[in-house]
Simulated assay, not measured.
Amino acid sequence: MHPVLRNFREIKNIKPLSIVSIGHGATHWVNGIFLVLLPFIVQDLSLNYTTAGTMVSIFFIAAVAITIISGPIIDITKKYITAQFLCLLSGFIALVIMSQSTSVYTLAIAAIFIGICVSGWHTPSIPYLSQLYEKNRGLALSIHTVGASLGDGIAPPIAGLIMLYITWQQTSMILSIPVIIMAIYITRCLPSIDYDEKSSKLHVKRTNYWEGLKALLSSKNMLKLCLLAGLWSMTQNGVTVFLPLYLVFVMDASPALVGFALFSIQAGAIFGGPVVGTWSDQIGRRPIVINALLISAILLFLLPLFDNVYLFILIVSLAGCSLYSIRPVIHSWTMDLSDKNASGSAVSMLFTAQAALTGTVPIIGGLIADNYGLKSVFILLTITSLLALILSLLMPKK
């Protein structure tokens, strides 16, 4: 029997994993809509690439803030379900505000709420699943990231197709409805009682939490992993931010084609994520990450050589798949290196590093695009992928 199927059968209660994964998909649904609408918002509001990049950087500034704040709060209060509900509510508010945007200021407010929605989700959800499915952590977190990939993948083509008939403002409003429905579903249907019984046994004094946090901050491997994850995230998010802009402004692509391109980036991760996650449980996280980063660096280096829109989408899709498929591996690696008493803070550290470094890419990439052309941005992303690869080689083999 295939290891994925064997490990999957060992999971006795799939319901919490399913609900949290769908909720994760809803947060990335919001992000996917924002990315596919962004080029057309830029057109309507007459923005330049630097301003467009600044809007995305505001998203990451909010992401840094929410991850710093939420880690200790989640570890001490254990309010996992409430935190997940608030993240989805923020996503709903973001899309409603975006549908009413007439200036960069309202768009910036929407970007803040998107940052809270997307990045705030991980701090409660990853420790929740990591402790609930401790023996199958890699597989569980892989399925969790499949939800994210589905949200990132499905939202853009749906938004693109809808925009063939109505405005981007109306599209944003209509697509906010599934998010609030999922938020309500989380509070009503996520089975918290069984987990609360288990968490009461795991609950420790606050002094033990701070001891765990101190050990976390003093771990050189954890700090290296956070930097590695930040560089990986810079590459991954740089592709998703500048791909729609490149397709619209350089290749004159339609909204539907932009949506399809963003979906194709996620396709490999949707199916490959569980396989890669389970494989990393068996052979270790390091070799998986090294090979994925090497593949992505090579493909991103070759990308500017392709002028045909379909070949370009094919190559960038392969690069995106290699990048997104290791998302659960990096999350599992973080849990491996952290104490369960400070698992929320470990996730907070990881995503703070990711958001802080990734927040520089939209502005730097926007400046490069305004001065040297959008194609030059992919050279920057090749460099960030290579730097992440170097750090992965410096991580211990076990």
Rank of each mutant, 00 (worst) to 15 (best):
R6A: 09
F8W: 06
R9M: 11
E10G: 00
N13F: 03
S18V: 15
I22R: 06
G23C: 07
H28L: 11
N31W: 09
I33M: 08
T50V: 06
T51S: 11
T51E: 14
F59D: 09
V64Y: 01
A65K: 02
I66D: 04
I66T: 04
T67G: 00
I76S: 02
Y80H: 12
T82Y: 08
Q84T: 10
L89C: 06
M98H: 15
M98T: 14
Y105W: 13
L107A: 13
A110V: 10
F113H: 13
I116N: 01
V118L: 12
W121F: 13
S125L: 02
S130I: 13
L132E: 15
A140L: 03
G153I: 03
A159V: 06
M163S: 13
T171P: 11
S172L: 02
M173V: 06
I174A: 04
I174S: 01
V179R: 05
M182F: 02
A183I: 00
E197V: 09
E197M: 14
S200V: 05
G212W: 00
K214W: 14
A215E: 13
A229Y: 07
W232D: 12
N237T: 09
V241K: 06
L243V: 14
L247T: 13
V248H: 12
S254V: 08
P255Y: 09
P255A: 07
V258P: 15
F260G: 06
G268A: 06
V275S: 01
V275F: 03
T278F: 07
Q282S: 08
N291H: 15
S296R: 07
F306Y: 08
V309C: 01
L314R: 00
S322T: 15
L323Y: 10
H331A: 09
S332N: 15
W333D: 08
T334S: 11
S338A: 12
K340G: 05
A342R: 00
G344A: 00
G344N: 00
L350H: 01
F351K: 02
A353W: 01
A355Q: 05
T360P: 08
V361N: 06
G366L: 01
A369I: 01
L374Y: 04
T382D: 04
T382C: 12
S385H: 10
L386D: 08
L386P: 14
M395G: 03
P396D: 07
